[in-house]
Nucleic acid binder design. Sequence first.
DNA 1: GGACTCTAATACACTTCTGTATCTGAATTC
DNA 2: GAATTCAGATACAGAAGTGTATTAGAGTCC
Lengths: 205, 205
Amino acid sequence: MPRKRLTREESREQTRLRLLEAAAVAIAKKGLAATSVEDIAAQAGYTRGAFYSNFKSKSDLFIELLRLDHQNIQEDLQKLLDADLSSEDLQQQLALFYAQCYRDDNNYVIWAEARLHAMRDAKFRQRMNALCLEKRDMIAYFIEQFCQRLNTQLPGPAADYALATIALMDGMLYFNIIMPNELPDASAEAVLTNIFTRTFFSPSP
Amino acid sequence: MPRKRLTREESREQTRLRLLEAAAVAIAKKGLAATSVEDIAAQAGYTRGAFYSNFKSKSDLFIELLRLDHQNIQEDLQKLLDADLSSEDLQQQLALFYAQCYRDDNNYVIWAEARLHAMRDAKFRQRMNALCLEKRDMIAYFIEQFCQRLNTQLPGPAADYALATIALMDGMLYFNIIMPNELPDASAEAVLTNIFTRTFFSPSP
DNA sequence: GGACTCTAATACACTTCTGTATCTGAATTC
DNA sequence: GAATTCAGATACAGAAGTGTATTAGAGTCC
């Protein structure tokens, strides 16, 4: 089969995507700071010339990378929300949400890098917080819907519990990745489900 | 007052500690990878010569840094355990534990760097996991004691819930640091207390 | 107080990265 | 199909870091 001859625009877009994908791999492997522009370009099968003609800087590419991934996560979440699941499924889905979003191992690392980067760079922090708050609000809506169905009442603002949910899932995922023997998937899931159930479901003590 | 004249040993130890302290500051500010040996030495008021005569490598110093900090955290935890507090205080103390441990702003960042480093370096990961498991077990004991006093039963292994506790606290602390307006201290504390209470206190649903 | 020893400074040789400036060949246009 | 335009390669000058080898100077010992 003859390889399709690409237009300039298509070719450029392909290069761009390859660079982004390569950056994700390289950054996950070596870290943002330790990954040189050269590494990224080489990993993608180009030279630095290609990089600089597609991105202003490494930082520029990194933000783009996060933006795209965040978009995917949001879309996945939206699908869950739209699916109009039963209560049990809803809970299940929330508990499994991260495992789904981060199905690509690189992604967890990328976001961990981003969190650190955000602590140091104020401009980056602003953008990053905006993304996080979007996610928080979506999960807050999730939680509200959940409580409403079960006819229970949260002891505080859903937004706060959404942050706690993200925090908990992120941290558990870390342990699950770093010491899978100590915290196998099943244990992690059981703990998450239990904490969610007891927090969002049980009446105020 | 005349400055005490140090023996060689004392002087060396002082240099070592200054380098460690300087490394904590520099690494928290710029990140592990972006911090050069020169940065650390300069921050401490020495040159690279002093560094290499005290540590084998940057990695070597970093592990030492974590080891020392972990030791402090463990000691603080032990004090809490030994204090024989009332149930209410026990819960309160657990919820505030991290804020106390990480009273120095740098420490959170240092450990975040360590978590990332652990994902990439197998040898480092082993050491790091050992430290984390020590902490987990201590918190598990904490939780068990708590449940025993309140005469409630955990729905699963305390060790798993200890990991969840660490995960939750770490993540909440992150949000608290990165977006203090969205998650002020009081909110974070309220959420943590609520989740703990409902998870460790309420009877099985 | 002179010889010895150890800490930390300095010098050095080497590697790696950055960003820009220039060039080349393929795509597009007429 | 020649002129042009643009993506990406290549060349270059400079900055910064690494680890080792050597040196200076202060601490220690007799």
